[in-house]
Design a binder for these strands. Structure first.
Lengths: 202, 202
DNA sequence: GGTTATATGGACACAGCGTACACAAGAGCT
DNA sequence: AGCTCTTGTGTACGCTGTGTCCATATAACC
């Protein structure tokens, strides 16, 4: 059950009584993550998670306050935080590589679909919104802001810039193309974003 | 109970047979828009729309393929396109005023909530996604791109910039703060966005 | 006028949520 | 060991909303 193999044999049906709490919890989270990656938020239902984990719905309701909370927990148990900002001393290189990696994550892995649907769900689920900000977006923002501040300290960027706004103009622009795909989200786009800001438009 | 706004009297309950198609259609759209603004996508259900419009669900199912399509139509009948890009000859002023107006629309009217929830719904509703892009985001993008191109023609901006990417760095950044409110979406933020791009970060 | 198109009320099955209750079996204590 | 507490399990219920089907009544068209 701990494996992610595609077959993923449904856990053998147990009898009635109690099973070790940690084991059940782990199986539920694994099932939630797997289901999320496989079907996205659309097909993500408490009933399916319970069925795939071989657990009862009651158990899930007892531990997670909302569907969103379960989805978020499930996502992190499968994907993990995946943070870390390389610092080579060159802001442009660091921002670009980080942004390009982000674009690839969104385009070439199921993470993109899941993230966009988590954000979608968060629009009507305050619990999920809070959890998402606290556990995902805020830490990532903080890392980017730190990197920018280091560059300011090194004199590579103006001292009077607002780092937060820069984050929105880099990652926010990518999220925009992820969520409203009028235009494609490409590696070239990511590089252009950094270039636009660095050189200015004039 | 039956409604929140004093005007637009509750459609008097009709008898059984047929009513003028246009009239019913108009009442459904009005009810859909009103409900959307009042409760957001969360409380937006076919049943409620039908009840408020004094129509039957069957009628709605016959005319609109999905809930998203109805919501989009309802939104436009109430809000309207609201486009138009002033062209004063000064790019900075034009982009800034347009962006500031957008921020106010998102913050100070119900439109912000509705838009964010329409985008959310579009993540799992391909029909709605297509409609949203076609009828809302694409036209607005086009106007902004035109404005930027005019500025390039005037020599106010570099000729080798990618206008589309600029749009994402201005409006996309705002959408980012709208959808993932780690940081506030303020008028000052809007001005900073333009400034960052114009002056460059160095 | 007669005919056709279509809006209506009502019914149905179905899915998913959220809750309640009684029971069984692990966990931990004495 | 025995005992109790905790907690997962099966099952059942009511609720909301969806999507589809009728038969009927009436406007719109010829």
């Amino acid at each position: 059950m701990s494996q992610l193999t595609p077959d993923a044999g449904p856990p053998p049906r147990r009898g009635r009584g109690r099973r070790p709490a940690d084991q059940v919890r782990a199986e539920i989270l694994a099932a939630a993550g797997k289901l999320l990656l496989a079907e996205g938020m659309a097909g993500f239902t408490i009933e399916k998670v319970a069925a795939q984990a071989g657990a009862s719905r009651m158990t899930i309701y007892k531990w997670w306050p909302s569907k969103g909370a379960l989805a978020l927990d499930g996502y992190f148990t499968v994907v993990g935080p995946t943070l870390a900002f390389h610092d080579t001393g060159d802001v442009v290189a660091d921002l670009t590589s980080q942004l390009v990696a982000f674009v690839h994550l969104m385009n070439d892995t199921p993470a993109g679909r899941v993230i966009s649907q988590l954000i979608a769900q968060a629009q009507t689920d305050p619990d999920l919104a809070a959890g998402y900000r606290q556990r995902y977006s805020a830490p990532r923002r903080a890392l980017a802001v730190e990197a920018i501040n280091r560059a300011v300290a090194r004199g590579q960027l103006r001292a009077d810039i607002d780092p937060e706004s820069v984050v929105d103009q880099l990652w926010g622009a990518c999220y925009h193309r992820l969520l409203i795909p009028d235009q494609p989200l490409t590696e070239e786009f990511a590089r252009t974003l950094v270039d636009n800001l660095m050189r200015g438009l004039r």
